[in-house]
Amino acid sequence: MSIQEFVAPHSLSEAKGFLSDGAAASVLAGGTDLLVGVRLGTRNPERVVDLKKIPELTAISIDAEAVHIGAAASAFSILHDSDVPSFFPGFAEALDLIGSTQIQGRCSAGGNLCNASPAADSIPALIANGAQCLITGPAGDHQMPVEDFVVGPSKNALKEGELLVALILPRPSPQTADAYLRLTPRTEMDIAVAGVGVSLTLDENATCTAARVSIGAVAPTALLVEAAGAALVGTQLDAAAIEAAVAAARQSACPISDKRGTSEYRTHVVGVLVARAIAQAQARIVEAVS
């Protein structure tokens, strides 16, 4: 029942070998979900494959088109040793909400995504920013949008032997900004009752030309609410447009009632957060261009 083997490969090909020889292997980035699961008895790997020694998995790079974040790069390194927060303040705030300073020193955006919790904080922020998953496996490399990657609670789209290598976020224009807000009863060390990621692009007349709205913790997976984004595009983010986006988000939400909140409450509050996140992203653009 306990872990039999721990390996820390130095290359992707080595890692793929450890994932494809039939052993019940789990990859480990920060381990802040995996090790908790092992301790609770919900995860039972024979082999643990640590990804942090593979250069591609922890690298963060920014080029003209996109921001590449190694799947195992720690939240701390993304937040404090890279320029990612200046491009995606909302995504950065989502990472900064995870756990505590100690947790952030270990945990990764890739782990947050692969763990596929409906309440994961970084996922709506990634979806709002149009992030792609770079996946490698026995059949080679391929990409997939984040909103397609999570297929159910604790279930992702990775196939046997596959691995998430990096997250690729299109580089935003100066007229684009994101925001992420979550509702938790406590200020920190808590899990989202609802979460909302928003990314907006405004033109020089303050008209919204692109918008993506993603909601978390109100459905089995984080959702891209296309109707909410559509309600904003072409408007000046007036009250009616925001109300339409809020209504669309509430419409898409299908939360459960549990110890963390009733279904009615989650549906209500996800709308509140949509309106506030839109306002925050808008304010960021206005501030950046003024």
Partner: peptide, 11 residues
């Protein structure tokens, strides 16, 4: 302590 919510310092 995740779902039995005693206050944390920042609360």
């Amino acid at each position: 302590f995740l779902d039995y919510r005693i206050p944390v310092a920042s609360d």
